[in-house]
């Protein structure tokens, strides 16, 4: 195993940053794939699977880059299937269980509204590889946002029951959304190196999008400012991630290196 002592602080931060992007896409992608075959309508089922596949495609790009940066002769697959929950760097929001369709789409909407401006900013990243992945992922994210917004608006401003469920989903997820904008030393290092944007700017754009669309959906933005933290730095994942990974990783863990 190669030691990391020769890595500079900046390259460690870049690896951490790229892992976060890959793990976000992987964990949300897997959550969406859990809907496969159980969607509320055939059309929605296929759309959910398409979203999952987009996200897994993004995961492959990010984790392949992370594996190169890591320099430990591991592949994207190794990173996805052979790491434990404590090594994951995804947002807590994305590991939340699916619950009902409305809850799944609300989680997707809150994340899409962040991904679109975030990836757009990454397109002009000083790191060309990051910029290229962002350009490809950004097109997919824009479609995801259009779709999740439509559904949040339709169900929020729908029947009494659908409105109640969407408000419940928003209330449950709101305290997790804030982690997207928690800035730590990796974010600062990436911003200083012109690799990633200032999250305050993304937060402002996110607020505009989310407020406008939730208004249209007749949903009330919770006034709580409490934020659950610990996903993106891996310090405190919730139990949900462990259960999810147990299902996702069982094949590779039981039969290492098996292939299609």
């Amino acid at each position: 195993m190669i030691t990391h002592s020769n890595q500079t602080a900046d390259s460690r931060h870049l690896l951490e940053f790229v892992l976060r992007q890959g793990d976000n896409a992987l964990v949300l992608g897997h959550r969406m794939s859990e809907w496969c075959g159980t969607g509320p309508a055939l059309e929605e089922d296929i759309a959910l699977a398409n979203t999952a596949l987009d996200l897994i495609g993004q995961t492959q790009m990010w984790l392949a880059y992370a594996a190169e940066l890591e320099g430990r002769d591991r592949s994207a697959n190794d990173l996805a299937f052979m790491r434990d929950a404590t090594d994951f760097r995804n947002l807590l929001l994305l590991e939340q269980p699916n619950r009902d369709f409305g809850h799944t789409m609300m989680r997707q909407f809150l994340f899409d509204a962040y991904q679109v401006p975030f990836l757009q900013a990454l397109e002009s990243s000083a790191d060309q590889r990051v910029a290229d992945i962002a350009a490809k992922s950004g097109r997919e994210a824009r479609y995801h946002l259009e779709r999740s917004s439509d559904i949040v608006i339709a169900l929020g401003d729908g029947t009494e029951e659908s409105h109640r469920r969407m408000q419940d989903a928003l209330d449950r997820l709101w305290s997790y959304a804030g982690e997207m904008f928690v800035t730590d030393e990796t974010d600062i290092a990436m911003h200083n190196a012109a690799i990633a944007p200032d999250l305050k700017l993304i937060h402002a754009q996110w607020n505009d999008t989310v407020q406008a669309r939730l208004n249209k959906a007749t949903l009330a933005v919770p006034d709580s400012t409490f934020v659950h933290k610990g996903g993106k730095n891996g310090v405190r994942h919730e139990e949900h991630l462990g259960h999810m990974l147990a299902t996702m990783q069982v094949l590779q863990r039981s039969y290492p290196n098996s292939v299609w």
Partner: peptide, 17 residues
Amino acid sequence: SLHAPDEKMAMNNARDV
């Protein structure tokens, strides 16, 4: 063919299906 509540979602569903 497909099912959808309105024309915008019909278009999105057509794209996805």
